[in-house]
Design a protein around this nucleic acid. Structure first.
Length: 544
RNA sequence: GCGCCCGUAGCUCAGCGGAUAGAGCGUCUGUCUUCGGAACAGAAAGUCGGCGGUUCGAAUCCGUCCGGGCGUACCA
């Protein structure tokens, strides 16, 4: 493909003395394998009819044996490769645009002391997938996580927990392991409600929140530690169930806090200024908004912690790039935090990038969750498993994760995801299971007979369509990885699987006269699909 | 008010300077004694929010208006 572009560029230079950049696109199949609009682009400066220009270029290209060139429409040059040329294209390797660069990326950040919900799942899956992309492009990738182990949500949970244990932390042992998820979730919900409705509870919770920073009281500390451990046990389980790869280092807000607050103090008044007793960063001068980093009480706020976290990551990894995936409401906030960090730590300049996602909204369909506010991840797992069972399938973990991953990865990063459980769980059409099924089907054929020959001379129409689609893989993947936009791959893989299913309907493989050729193509297809699914972190099953 | 994001088929979304605007779901009609039907083929359905502009060419770029979301100092 690169050669074809260069060939045409050379012809344009030769015929018209113009140095132009020729971009090839993949047009609809009826037009050929590649197309370029170069004639339309240079028509004006040549003051010539674009079709004439296209004709000249096209006829000069005709000699080459690997393709034919035709002019169509207002002046497009459509290029069709020989079957051999197309097949060769289907075998290329992907490029390594980040070879050797050290990068850090947060791949999950649910908080302990409260339930993990669907929004956490979204960010986790996205972060993990982008980490796959970074790795695929050759970067030395460190997956990390970041969690809020201090603050108001801890106070709320501790309020209910201390009531539950009635002075004896040992009472927590009566909670069975399989109930811990919902137990933690209930404790938080109750504390949250009390905080809202009962002024005396609110005062108590504020006090318990302060204690989350120090944890000096022995009962508090014992309860805290136990539920902290449970929380991470559950977080690890749930994150793994999403299909995420393990993280290298877990960061906590408490450690980021101490690092961040001292950093802020050290940079007064150059970076931060005192205002009403608080330490403030004038983000409005840096494309953000003025924001308090250290409160007038002297405690670090969220921004100070994020600042400290940037420092900790830099010290530990010295990354070329550090990625933080968050919801869009934090977009402008992070512009400020990153600007402040770069002023305090000049060697982190250009290092930290905030990728902001849309929000997960719930459709108005039959969406039930215990408190009506959030959809807990464990509930969602159950719903998907049930849907698979209803269909007569085995709800193994890989399938469940595939449903969620694909649902979140198929939309462009930044746009909102309206999550409809019923639809996600329908397992039909443009869905994770469709792709997994399309893979299992192909592998099923291959398990009956192995492909032998790699000698393919001529392709039938249906075969050629499949090869044509396979040959698009590299371009799509390179673009997707470069832009860190998973949806390009997701959409491509769906089209690829559709193409295969079409092929499958009309082309008998085993015991057909063209068995050897077709086995080879099925093998190519299955490997291509698997590679793509691997990048998305979706398991490609041999059977299901 | 100011800043950022978004308005594409009934619904959910791709397409982000080019050839008749695509897909899934939903609706309607078919295929079906299957190398695994979680499939395939087809139909109906769109003033690409409105209006201007740039361009040989605009859903795509620019302006403006309308409509929605988020943010806008001691929450996270």
């Amino acid at each position: 493909m690169q050669q074809i572009s260069e060939l045409i560029e050379a012809k344009v230079l030769e015929l018209f003395a113009i140095e132009a950049r020729v971009d090839l696109t993949r047009p609809e199949e009826q037009y050929g394998d590649f197309a370029t609009n170069i004639a339309l682009q240079i028509a004006k400066q040549l003051n010539k009819n674009p079709r004439e220009i296209a004709d000249e270029i096209a006829s000069s290209l005709h000699h080459d044996e690997i393709f034919k060139a035709e002019v169509a429409g207002p002046g497009f040059i459509n290029i069709t490769l020989s079957d051999q040329g197309l097949l060769r294209l289907a075998n290329q390797e992907t490029a390594k645009g980040r070879e050797g660069a050290v990068v850090v990326i947060e791949t999950n950040n649910p908080n302990p002391f409260k339930a993990m919900h669907i929004g956490h799942a979204f960010n986790s899956i996205l972060g993990d997938t982008l980490a796959n992309f970074l790795e695929a492009s050759g970067a030395i990738t460190h997956r990390v996580s970041y969690h809020g182990d201090i603050g108001l949500h801890v106070g709320k949970s501790m309020y209910s927990l201390l009531r539950f244990v009635e002075g004896d932390a040992g009472k927590l042992d009566t909670v069975r392991q399989e109930d811990r998820n919902s137990f933690i979730s209930r404790m938080y919900a109750e504390g949250s409600q009390a905080y809202k409705e009962d002024p005396s509870a609110k005062a108590e919770i504020d006090e318990l929140t302060k204690q989350s920073f120090t944890r000096e009281d022995t009962l508090y500390s014992a309860v805290y530690q136990k539920v902290f451990d449970w929380s991470f046990e559950q977080i690890d389980i749930n994150v793994a169930r999403l299909g995420n790869k393990p993280i290298k280092r877990r960061f906590l807000e408490s450690e980021a806090e101490s690092s961040g607050v001292s950093m802020v103090r050290d940079n007064v008044p150059d970076v931060f200024q005192e205002s009403d007793g608080a330490l403030v960063f004038k983000g409005s001068e840096h494309g953000s908004f003025d924001n308090v980093f250290v409160s007038s009480r002297g405690t670090g706020l969220y921004a100070a912690r994020d600042l400290g976290l940037i420092k900790l990551k830099n010290e530990q990894f010295h990354p070329r790039r550090s990625y933080i995936v968050t919801a869009e409401e934090q977009r402008s906030y992070f512009v400020g935090v990153i600007a402040a960090a770069e002023l305090c730590l000049p060697d982190t300049n250009g290092q930290t990038l905030n990728i902001s996602t849309g929000t997960v909204k719930l459709s108005t369909g039959k969406m039930s969750s215990r408190d009506g506010e959030v959809v807990e991840i464990s509930w969602l797992f159950d719903q998907i498993a049930e849907a698979i069972r209803v269909r007569g399938g085995e709800p193994d973990e890989a399938l469940i994760a595939g449903v969620l991953r694909y649902e979140f990865l198929k939309v462009r990063i930044g746009s909102d995801v309206v999550f409809d459980v019923n639809e996600a769980v329908s397992l039909q059409g443009n869905s994770g299971p469709y792709l997994q099924y399309a893979h299992a089907r192909a592998r099923s054929i291959l398990s009956k007979k192995e492909p032998s020959t790699d000698q393919i001379s001529e392709l039938s129409e249906g075969e050629r369509s499949l090869v044509r689609k396979i040959s698009e893989y590299n371009v799509v993947v390179i673009r997707s990885i470069e832009e860190l936009m998973p949806h390009h791959i997701a959409n491509y893989l769906y089209e690829l699987a559709q193409e295969f299913n079409r092929f499958y309907e009309n082309n008998r493989v085993i015991d057909d006269g063209r068995q050897d050729v077709r086995l080879n193509l099925v093998n190519k297809y299955a490997n291509t699909l698997k590679n793509g699914l691997d990048l998305l972190g979706i398991y490609a099953p041999e059977s299901m």
